[in-house]
């Protein structure tokens, strides 16, 4: 039971596999723990963390900056917070978001502060 928190597993997947993979995992009873984004030289590094029985499974996607990615709000509605956050702070483009604030989720002094354009 103990030492569970030390487990670190990252699984790399392609952007196109994301929706199918999450759908399968949701059917098995996984819940969404978090989504986050890091700016790397290749574009964005997205991490989707799922939890089942207190063990985290992380899916890693490298997304080129200009490319769009499918929203997961159709699977986990609760993801709208993360997707809007990433859209506002990083400029990640999502397709078919269930709840899209259109860049007004966080009102920031400069657009996409984590990924400055100039």
């Amino acid at each position: 039971m103990s030492e569970q928190w030390k487990i670190q597993n990252f699984i790399s997947i392609e952007p196109t596999q994301l929706v199918d993979t999450l759908q399968d995992y949701k059917a098995e009873g996984y819940r969404l723990a978090q989504v986050h984004c890091t700016k790397v030289s290749e574009g964005f590094e997205l991490t989707y963390s799922l939890d089942k029985d207190h063990v985290l499974t992380n899916f890693r996607i490298i997304l080129p900056e200009e490319e769009e990615i499918m929203s997961i709000t159709g699977i986990y509605w609760a993801a709208f917070i993360y997707e809007n956050e990433m859209q506002d702070l990083f400029g990640v483009k999502f397709k078919h978001m269930a709840l899209n604030y259109g860049g007004h989720f966080y009102k920031v002094s400069q657009p996409t502060p984590w990924n400055p354009k100039d």
Partner: peptide, 13 residues
Amino acid sequence: RQDIRLTGNGVYD
């Protein structure tokens, strides 16, 4: 029944 303390961080175990 969901509680991260069950994963044994700290001395919870």
